[in-house]
């Protein structure tokens, strides 16, 4: 007998919080997979630090979502008892680690966005979200600095590192558009001054990314076709496997406390 998935009342604010929480959880989980396997011990520490920051953000956001929903759910019910189709993270977050270049490019693309996003969210009319944003912004600023320095070194390092990092950019580019999407549920929150319109952040994000890419001697793809669907539960095949692992204990031992 396995533990079945919960039902979630996805009112706009709940949905909003779950989307950001899922981003942080899935990306944090991916980074935690490097623990014990990084190219150098110093980097094992750095990736674990970033993962811990993101997992911390996830927990705070899940707790807030549970409070707003008011149906008796909590951080663990959201994380462990929702299926793939209920997850609301960006497709970018669930992409596999692949090699170090892919991991750092994924982190760079995300952190360049998160840094801008949380900074803007510090002005949210919702005091809880504004406070979460203030804490998260400090963390994202460091994640951006760390991943930028690596993208530069990998891009402008050796021929092999340049080739791998260019490949990572080419592979992950199509997942960057989703960060700037807005749907009806979020439009209402934006109009109410609670959420930030991510589309307004795109020019600045492009400038940051282009600047680092240039310094790294890397080219940005010309294509503007973007993958979508994560925000609505239409994920890549990767998420199912990730959740199988993440949720295995709670699914196997229903109702147990750990």
């Amino acid at each position: 007998m396995a533990a079945p998935s919960i039902k979630v009342s996805e009112t706009p604010l709940v949905l909003y919080a779950l989307r950001r929480a899922d981003d942080a959880l899935i990306l944090g989980h991916r980074l935690s997979e490097w623990c014990g396997h990084a190219p150098a011990l110093e980097e094992d520490m750095a990736l674990a630090n970033i993962a811990l920051d993101l997992l911390g953000q996830a927990r705070t956001l899940y707790s807030y979502a549970a409070e707003v929903e008011g149906k008796g759910n909590d951080e663990d019910k959201f994380a462990y008892l929702r299926d793939v189709r209920q997850y609301r993270n960006l497709l970018l977050a669930e992409q596999p680690n692949s090699d170090f270049a892919h991991t750092l490019v994924r982190q760079f693309f995300y952190s360049a966005f998160a840094d801008l996003y949380w900074r803007a969210m510090m002005q949210s009319r919702n005091p809880t979200l504004a406070a979460i944003a203030a804490k998260s912004e400090k963390e994202s600023a460091y994640h951006l600095r760390h991943s930028s320095e690596w993208v530069i070194r990998l891009g402008d390092g050796t021929e092999e590192s340049h080739r791998r990092t260019q490949a990572a950019i080419d592979d992950l580019w199509a997942f960057t558009g989703e960060m700037f999407e807005v749907d009806e549920a979020e439009r209402g929150l934006i109009d109410a001054g609670i959420a930030v319109d991510p589309a307004t952040l795109k020019p600045h994000w492009l400038k940051t990314v282009a600047g680092i890419a240039a310094e790294a001697t890397l080219a940005l793809p010309k294509s503007d076709w973007m993958q979508q669907g994560g925000r609505h539960g239409r994920h890549s095949e990767h998420l199912g496997h990730l959740l199988s692992e993440l949720q295995s204990m709670q699914r196997t031992f229903p109702g147990a406390a750990w």
Binding site: A40, E42, M45, A46, N49, E149, R153
Partner: peptide, 19 residues
């Protein structure tokens, strides 16, 4: 700690010694 240059050394120091 081991690092390839000063920038990376500062970051590593933060990650290892100021957690």
């Amino acid at each position: 700690l081991h690092a390839s240059d000063a920038t990376m050394a500062l970051q590593a120091a933060r990650d290892i010694y100021t957690r």
